[in-house]
Design a protein around this nucleic acid. Sequence first.
DNA 1: ATGGTAGGTATCCTA
Length: 265
Amino acid sequence: MRLRITTWNANSVRLREAALRRIVAEIRPDVLCLQETKVEDHRFPHELFAELGFPHRHVHGQKAYHGVAILSKLPLEDCHARKWCGVDDCRHAICRLPGGIELHDLYVPAGGDVPDPEANPKFAHKLAMLRELTDWFADRRGDGARLVLVGDLNIAPLENDVWSHKQLLEVVSHTPVETEGLGALQRAYGFLDAVRTVIPPEKKLYTWWSYRARDWDASDRGRRLDHIWLSPALAPTLVTAEVRRDARGWENPSDHVPVTVELEV
DNA sequence: ATGGTAGGTATCCTA
């Protein structure tokens, strides 16, 4: 079967009903992973997703900040959440899809403005979560699991994942300590960067554009912060991948756009 | 060099 998985940082799920309807109609994901839902679980708009054909839902949210959710047309099993760095926030949801596929939906801290862990606790938290994830996946290395890791990792790892590599080397999201840390996480389990397998690293590719630009499309100062990775066991199933840049130009947009992979599983 | 916008909450935090 063909399995389509979409990840999107919605920047408040309650404000994005129109965009979510378009995503479902135009991308037709089987599984939709959200980040920055910014809502407690008892206020999550379950009715909307039930109506849109996603009867299986795992929501993991909190008031005002962060929050992740997995919405699925297919049954979900063993849904749970993980905490990192001893912090009681909502950044990681895990479910098993049919075929034993283990899906991880992640929201890595943005990290604040100052790229110095001594001076900036938010940057220290970002690096600490990356290290803990790296150790956790390294312990599972070689277990042959069928893993999909998606989400807003808040790091643009490659030179062509940002509008100007040189100008962003000291900007949080593209500093060497972050891009090397993300590389270490990827190598810890042998994850394949699915989107860059389909869209070559020589091409500029972004999934986020700041709200602050006068004209996001004309200035095009984007970054590729949202990712879909596959474990070695799932890598051969990759059919295609797509970044919906046009979604940034929709009415009332998120600052992130949806990223999708299709797998033949 | 600076400030720019958006979301949630309750007056300022985070992105």
